[in-house]
Design a binder for these strands. Structure first.
Lengths: 212, 212
DNA sequence: TGTTAATGACTGACTGGTCAGTCACACTAT
DNA sequence: ATAGTGTGACTGACCAGTCAGTCATTAACA
């Protein structure tokens, strides 16, 4: 039908539409992060985008929907960065190290997404399970198999429960991500080194270890 | 002057005043935690307290001031619980274990304060340094000396930087506190056991440790 | 003891300001 | 001409904080 072609030339293509929406999402991410959900009003976002407020609503159903789209976009980017970094090597311990490094680096380079995680939990706590944990759970299945394999091969201690181990690692990087963001961090490289050293080898001295 | 005595009997004592304020703070803590800062409007808080809205403003300067008082109260209670638990023993490793256990237990039993930490960061991010970190920094001085002493005595590894060690421990318990709160946790006891086991002894198997 | 006055804790309807979302109209490209 | 895209003034809901007024209690006095 000619109508389809006509429409295609008259209308912005689906491609164009999603590009504009994406532009809105990325600008909103930064503004939400900078001002907080409540103080980031739609008029302000419109001004930043050099567009009228009504235009935003052509691409977005509501402020809430927009915000959640921002969080989701950020988390998917994060997951991508971590996965890519992990796949760069086959050595299992190096893989763990790279994944952690990529995770912390991502949030260090895109601090707006740390803010969005916090905002989401603070404001939509009764409406939505935190997106961060959705992504975390999805990735966990594979990491669990990965760690279990290392235990089976005798490379990790067999007297530690895999799930508790995963929890501990997860909690450590999660806490580190937040404090890095809140307090800043001079040397992210040294920090990661120490962190990995401790979880791999423990903080006890050799003497103390033998004594126990 | 007789007037002073008269006034003393008419007026509520300073004691009474601070008790009422405390009642407001504690009720507000739970309501802020349950509904979030924005959805917890002062009318609702007044209803919960079975008091008129105006009355609250006799004890509190503003919603913001009230909220910050809630956070501060919570953190001071937390610090108290941790300090008391740590002082129950002289064995240094047991002291670390007890402090961590008290910390996690406190937030598990008073989940409203986890919410307040999040809300504070989300809503007052540009106005106030998080109260949590104020308290954390205050306590850090003593923990630093404590860990340094253990290193000097050869009970902890001397090749790890004290500050990085403190950071790692802090990040781990911080992250654990949050995820416990968000996801709930079946066995807080087993979790703490694993966590301590890992930071003390590491997750590498003996074989792998020797190989490195 | 009974009556009136003073006190101050408490009340809740009201105000002023904010802001998400709407819609009638304008513009543009074909 | 007309369909699609953009506009921004407007509306209605919401809520922090206020303040003129109420009421219970105690003091003062006859």
């Amino acid at each position: 039908m000619a109508k389809v072609q006509t429409k295609a030339s008259l209308t912005q293509s689906a491609e164009q539409r999603s590009q504009r929406r994406q532009k809105i999402v990325e600008t909103a991410s930064k503004l939400f992060a900078q001002l907080g959900y409540a103080d980031c009003d739609m008029d302000r976002l419109a001004a930043k985008l050099r567009v009228a407020k009504g235009t935003i609503y052509l691409y977005v159903a509501s402020k809430e929907e927009l915000f959640l789209a921002c969080v989701d976009w950020g988390m998917s980017q994060m997951q991508l960065a971590v996965r890519e970094a992990a796949e760069m090597t086959d050595d299992p311990f190096e893989r763990i190290a790279r994944a952690i490094r990529a995770y912390l680096t991502f949030f260090s380079e895109h601090p707006q997404y740390v803010e969005l995680i916090i905002q989401e939990r603070a404001i939509f706590k009764n409406r939505k399970r935190p997106t961060y944990f959705e992504y975390r759970d999805a990735a966990r299945v594979q990491w669990r198999a990965f760690y279990q394999d290392l235990i089976n091969k005798g490379r990790l201690r067999s007297d530690i429960n895999v799930d508790s181990l995963l929890d501990t690692m997860g909690n450590l990087v999660y806490g580190t991500m937040f404090t890095n963001h809140f307090l800043g961090n001079r040397s992210i490289e040294e920090q990661q080194q120490t962190m990995l050293d401790i979880v791999f080898r423990g903080m006890l001295s050799d003497r103390e270890r033998r004594a126990k």
